[in-house]
Design a binder for these strands. Structure first.
Lengths: 177, 177
DNA sequence: GTTTGACATGTCGAAGTCGACACATGCAGA
DNA sequence: TCTGCATGTGTCGACTTCGACATGTCAAAC
């Protein structure tokens, strides 16, 4: 299961509690790669502990339990990361919508595409500002993952914008045929 | 549900059977936007027919049933497509793996990143060739969706490659600090 | 002292997804 | 003629995910 590996990966970078991990999924990781709520995270950590992939290494106030990856967990993660790159799970509601705009009347599709462009443009602007801001103090620990995700997100938005511009152009061409 | 809308969108472009729709999910649509097997498609079509979103407009050999969108279905699709662009469902195993490479030892991470670059490069090459080939005969019907998807896929692969190049460079820099 | 809000973990049922299994048809080629 | 293959549709159980609900703690502000 991918959730298992996502948790394994996060914990491999730095030990954390279910609460910390849940917040991670609300950041860039959840925005571009994999989503999970706390109702998935907590039970999964218990199952992973039972399988010996992780263990509780610290107990803090408010029942906080900090998990760390065991050597077995690290091995499982490594195995998964080094598998050949095939077709994995893909599920992206926004991209689905982009493709299906074709089903609208040309005028409405064009308007929606302009919406996509604006949305992507905003994403580019926001992440660029974020990057400039981060250049001053290099990230550590799990923040490095956040930086990787943010960089990817930036390129994603650029690709989305370029695609939408192309699609709009393409639509206009077909309209004037 | 997104599956509902995916089917609605495909049928809005062109009436089709569950079998046709399933094949569509095996193409670019399933590769970049949304996956679904026939075991999800057939029951969903029945449910959608019960809700009045689609209807059987033709019965062919081998129990083939061709579905079409009803006006109610078209309205539902339109409503969904014109909703404001927020954060939808995102699930991408490959991207997840890309981010988590950070958890590997620098040497292994670098090797894996070079794998990503090669993989993305292949994707770019393949889709570019596909595009050149398609330039001769413009697509029709559902093929237009395929073209939109392929164009998007091409930009995706480029973004993936660029990201991986950046990440590799970034990794080397941190290694020599 | 109490209220507010972030911290922190959990259950449970409904809904959605997936792989395994199942079965029947029409067509093309050996 | 028969054999294989793509076509075409379906069920079922296991697993995953998600939202709603529930509970308690600690610190700071008021």
């Amino acid at each position: 299961m991918s959730l298992t590996h996502a948790l394994l990966g996060l914990l491999a970078v730095e030990p954390a509690s279910g609460y910390d991990l849940t917040k991670e999924f609300e950041q860039d990781l959840g925005r571009y790669a994999w989503q999970a709520g706390h109702t998935s995270v907590y039970p999964e950590l218990v199952r992973m502990a039972e399988r010996g992939l992780v263990e509780v290494t610290e107990e803090g106030p408010r029942r906080r339990r900090t998990y760390s990856v065991t050597s077995q967990g690290r091995e499982e993660l490594r195995k998964w990361l080094l598998e050949p790159w095939g077709q994995g799970v893909v599920r992206n509601e926004q991209v689905l919508r982009m493709f299906l705009l074709e089903a609208l009347e040309p005028e409405e599709a064009a308007a929606a595409l302009r919406g996509v462009i604006e949305h992507a443009e905003q994403g580019v602007t926001q992440l660029s500002a974020h990057r400039a801001h981060r250049a001053e103090e290099p990230p550590e620990g799990r923040d490095v993952l956040g930086q990787l995700a943010a960089e990817y997100g930036l390129r994603q938005y650029q690709a989305m914008r370029d695609w939408a511009l192309w699609a709009l152009d393409h639509l206009n061409q077909r309209r004037t045929d």
